[in-house]
């Protein structure tokens, strides 16, 4: 479910900030830096390490700031990064 499609919090329980978790497929990364530049919460930085093609993939530094907005996934031209809702992962891993 998308952020903007969520049920409005009025009258219901106190809204919890949505938290996301970032997954980086490093070998697909070509180091363009779009995700780092355009992450609204500055979650990412460019790392020091090389991937197999000699690029520097992004690295998560402030994981707690990720709000699962999905822009990094959208702006990544290489399909190398995406986010999942943290809760979803837990529940999924539980059932799996």
């Amino acid at each position: 479910m998308r952020v903007r499609e969520r049920i409005k919090p009025f009258g219901s329980e106190k809204p919890q900030p949505v938290k996301g978790e970032l997954i980086i497929i490093e070998d697909r990364c070509k180091g363009c830096g779009f995700c780092v530049e355009y992450c609204p919460n500055d979650v990412l930085i460019v790392s020091d390490k090389f991937n197999s093609k000699g690029y520097h993939p992004p690295e998560v530094v402030h994981e707690e700031n990720c709000r699962y907005c999905g822009f990094c996934q959208l702006v990544c031209p290489d399909f190398a990064i995406f986010s999942i809702e943290e809760k979803a992962v837990e529940s999924k891993s539980n059932t799996a």
Binding site: G31, C32, Y55, P77
Partner: peptide, 15 residues
């Protein structure tokens, strides 16, 4: 990975 260069916007259009 696809053939487009780093910093190319075609991937964005596909996205």
């Amino acid at each position: 990975p696809h053939i487009w260069c780093p910093g190319c916007g075609i991937g964005n259009a596909v996205s």
